[in-house]
Amino acid sequence: MMKYSNTGSKDTRSGFGEGLLEIGRQDPRVVALCADLTGSLKMDAFAKAFPERFIQVGIAEANMMGIAAGLTIGGKIPFTGTFANFSTSRVYDQIRQSIAYSNKNVKICASHAGVTLGEDGATHQSLEDMGLMRMLPNMTVICPCDFNQTRAATLAIAKHTGPVYMRFGRPKWPNFTPVDQEFVIGKAQVMREGKDVSVFAIGHLVWNALSAAEILQEKGIDAEVINIHTLKPLDENAVLNSIRKTGCAVSAEEHMRNGGLGDTIAQSFVRNFPAPLEMIAVNNTFGESGKPEELLKKFGLDVPDIVNAALKAITRKKERNF
């Protein structure tokens, strides 16, 4: 099993920007749309390289989603870019009717997701986006864990036919997965094998889960860490194989508990293998302004929170003789 280490922190949105430029070079059908956040989404390199395939729509996200849906008619592969909030809740009905129900090959790419957006506060910190998108039939939902993986995922979603929602973030964050990885949609990654507790993590919190596993190891606990980079479709085999081995689990996400990864895994557990599950997520509250690390701590998404959740899950397992 390879051991992951930070090769130099980078923002995941820049991984998207690099991936978009590369897939733009590879595939002339790729077009990009942005609603006045080209710099924030790191789409400027694509816009500069392919001005004839870049569409600035202005601050008009509903129109952007409709145009993207229309662009697919005639074979384009549109990538939309704006913040996670404006990519989902602001345009939910446009996505629902013109993209998901119509099954159009649109890639909705969303940055600044979660509380690690930081100082902008709750209006911009989308914590519901994955849940909203996960409810839509035909929609694939992806949240890669670091820069390299976001870059790889951007290439992968262009090659996948059908609507995709991909979320990523703003802050510089440890970059630890291989630069040359192949991203397989719907295939969870076992980042670290273990037998005592499964930690299922998504997005930025995969790194926190790996850090928590190190601390747990010092306590003599052998944690398995699995990166669920594709929330939908869930790699149910990977989840169930792990829980059958460990008997208890923690889910970790920078998202609302309702509708997110823990919710998704709990559904699978209940139907297949009821087992204790501790959920690291934001619970029924809006975010607020602050530094990313302060907010992760405040909302209980930090490394010590994952460690404590794992200990609690193991205690529950022992109490119930799983």
Binding site: G66, G70, L71, S102
Partner: peptide, 19 residues
């Protein structure tokens, strides 16, 4: 294209025209 929820068709038509 599916339609029924109003106000979306013109955006879609613009996208198809751009393509």
């Amino acid at each position: 294209m599916s339609s029924g929820s109003l106000g979306q068709g013109l955006s879609v038509a613009i996208g198809a025209a751009l393509t």
